[in-house]
């Protein structure tokens, strides 16, 4: 691994105080290289979501540090963190998180709008992203009128519209039937391969995890195994 994108050192996260203290992460040390596809696997309550939130800079660790491109992120100001998330990360969630009453186009545009990009430019880029997920003909439709698979494709378009370095996918196929899920998976791995976008998938689905080149297993807030496989999502 020549090019480390994200790394953690003794990462700890504690929730609650005194009697109700709960140690969600008990010291995680991992390195993720640019262009990798990584599955973070674990049962619910294992701490995998907490790890993803920390990696995605959505939350601050109680202890330890996260380095992005070698830079310690704990010293960054809130503004800078917001900018980083907006420019470098894309998010795909299990339950989509779309503005149901808004159009497909407006949903995809959201990160660009937050970034303050002009109307014409953001429309152009959103249409490009929609073309990649093959939904450019539905840009005017309301998000709520789409099927589950289409919704998740819109979310992927939204995740890639700002040309991110990393996509965080939290159970991306959890709400989809297997055929639709396969399509979404293929889309994500294609993006990983063709655009060299680092893919970090949080899942408890072994099948999906197996398609990643690397599987990090989490249990009780610690890494129990970290395996790199050759086959990954080649096929």
């Amino acid at each position: 691994m020549t090019n480390t994108l994200l790394s953690t050192h003794n990462l700890k996260k504690v929730y609650g105080k005194r009697d109700t203290v709960f140690e969600a992460l008990k010291g995680i040390d991992i390195e993720i290289g640019a262009g990798e596809s990584v599955a973070i696997i674990g049962k619910s309550g294992s701490g995998k979501s907490t790890l993803m939130h920390l990696l995605a800079l959505l939350d601050k660790p109680t202890e330890g540090e996260i380095r992005l491109n070698g830079k310690n992120t704990s010293k960054l100001k809130k503004r800078k963190l917001n900018r980083l998330r907006n420019k470098e990360f894309g998010f795909v969630f299990q339950s989509f998180f779309m503005n149901a009453n808004d159009s497909v186009l407006n949903n995809v545009i959201l990160p660009l709008k937050i970034a303050g990009i002009g109307r014409r430019e953001r429309k152009r880029r959103a249409m490009e992203a929609l073309k990649i997920v093959e939904l450019d003909d539905k840009f005017k439709n309301k998000a709520k009128d789409l099927s589950g698979g289409q919704k998740q494709r819109v979310c992927i378009a939204r995740a890639i519209v700002n040309n991110p370095k990393v996509i965080f996918a939290d159970e991306p196929t959890g709400n989809l039937d297997s055929a639709t899920g396969d399509k979404i998976e293929k889309l994500l791995f294609d993006l990983n391969r063709e655009k060299n976008i680092t893919l970090i998938v949080v899942t408890h689905d072994e099948e999906l995890a197996a398609k990643c080149k690397r599987q990090i297993r989490i249990a009780d807030g610690t890494v129990v195994s970290d395996v790199k496989t050759k086959k990954g999502a080649k096929k």
């Binding site: 917001n82 998330r85 998010f91 998180f97 503005n99 959201l110 990160p111 937050i114």
Partner: peptide, 16 residues
């Protein structure tokens, strides 16, 4: 609430 969460996750500042 969820929309606000999404906006913030995607980098919208508290001020905005």
């Amino acid at each position: 609430t969820r929309e606000i969460g999404l906006d913030k996750a995607l980098g919208m500042s508290n001020g905005k």
